[in-house]
Amino acid sequence: MGGQDAGQVPREGHDFALWEKRVDALMVLCSSKGYFTVDGLRRVLEDMGEESFETMTYYERWISSINQNMVEAGAYSLEELGTKMAEITARGETYGEASGG
């Protein structure tokens, strides 16, 4: 990425949403517990390709990478994840309803 042409640096910021802070916390906790390292996080982020910068936000890319690493580390299976995600989607239409607060 370094040295590529790009436009003006956008300066607007945002307050982190609760779900984004949770993603950040999950990264720190999972890596401190030895499931994977920051290098694994970066490897999957890079494998997602530059297109993901256009289609996903920062913490969307992170949760995708953390999940990939945790599956590879054997923390849970894809079947468990799929079942849980379906269960959560059925709980409600908003993050608050689906996450229980």
């Binding site: 999972c30 949760i63 999940n67 945790m70 849970y76 468990e80 994840l81 995600m85 689906a98």
Partner: peptide
């Protein structure tokens, strides 16, 4: 949804 699922599984 993935974040909630992962958090609850962990």
């Amino acid at each position: 949804t993935m974040e909630i699922a992962m958090r609850e599984l962990l």
